Amino acid sequence: MPVISVPFDFNEEELYVDLEPIFGHSLFLKCEGFNFAGSIKLKAATQMVEAAEWHGLLKPDSILVESSSGNLGVALSMVAASKGYRFLCVTDSRCNLAARRLMEALGSRVHVISQPAGSGGFLGARLDLVRGLCAADDRYVWLNQYANPANWRAHYQTTAPEIARQFPELDVLFVGAGTTGTLMGCARYFREWPRPVRVIAVDSAGSVTFGGEPGRRMIPGLGTSVRPPLLDERYVDEVIVVDEADTIRSCHRLARNGFLFGGSTGTVVSGAMRWLPEHEGNDLTAVAIAPDLGERYLDTIYQTNWLHDLYGDEVLDEDELIAGLRLD
């Protein structure tokens, strides 16, 4: 029986969903949403805060500050509340309302950017504000998830070994690319693994992470408008870019089978299901990482008015609508 005294001491490490009955292709989905922060970002948040403590950057009057599209902000809010720190999350208008309310419930302040920067989009504007706060007041401590090596080390030390223990014959791993912390940690780990493992990055259309043209992105989590400094493409075997409409369809297909996952998961699953049919003859063992669950997306991905306003009436087919997915 687990007994904990701080919320970041618990995280479910061994839960996987076999997606073959749903999609017809063999893929094991590692579920990272079963902790008190509700996402894989708890690992990076804990590691980055504890690294800042170890380096003596945090003092009694320090204010943690970070740019986040939602999940890391929630995770840092939880860690900060547990450790007695103040935290300011700088986000933008695409952040789910549920995530903002969670951060505020945990005692954090949330600043919402409403206009993108001239270059760099919403992320550029968020980063400009964070840099300005730090320059004006030395109490602010920016963890900088986009460049902080503690971000990828968290997954090198936890996520990748967890997968390796359960799947010693792993052939291919699908990882969503946001800050690329999860991607880089897992890719570095499996580059040292005794057997070859293909690490495939899954990105959102409109993201510039891998050199794509910037475009509209309405689903928070994956993709960036500023290339993350953590990214080292030498560790990535392939990149798959997924349109948001396909993300939505994958999320709803999972939901029709009783699994409510978030947008990042839908993107990763969609990318994997595009790749697997072309390589199934090799009898591969494939794993994908599901960063979060779907409750925070009820007002967006699972709300048909929002979907139709942004993606048109045909984003979901008639069978999906009949299946009871109207949550508005």
Results as ranks from 00 to 15, higher is better:
A136M: 01
R131W: 05
L88K: 12
D128V: 04
E104Y: 05
L102H: 08
L127W: 08
C134S: 04
L123N: 07
A117T: 04
A125G: 06
V110A: 10
G118N: 09
R109E: 14
R101T: 04
G107F: 04
F87K: 03
S108L: 05
N96K: 13
G107Q: 07
V90A: 12
V110T: 12
L106C: 00
R101H: 08
C89A: 15
V130G: 01
R126N: 06
S119L: 05
T91G: 11
H111P: 00
G120T: 09
R101L: 10
L102A: 13
G124T: 09
F87E: 01
R109T: 06
V112D: 10
G132V: 01
S108P: 03
I113D: 05
N96E: 14
C134M: 07
G118H: 05
L97W: 05
V110N: 12
E104F: 08
G132N: 09
R86C: 01
G132D: 12
G124V: 12
L129N: 04
C95V: 08
G120I: 09
T91Q: 12
P116I: 07
L106W: 10
Q115N: 06
A135Q: 11
S114M: 08
G124S: 10
A98L: 09
R101V: 04
R86D: 05
G118M: 08
A125S: 14
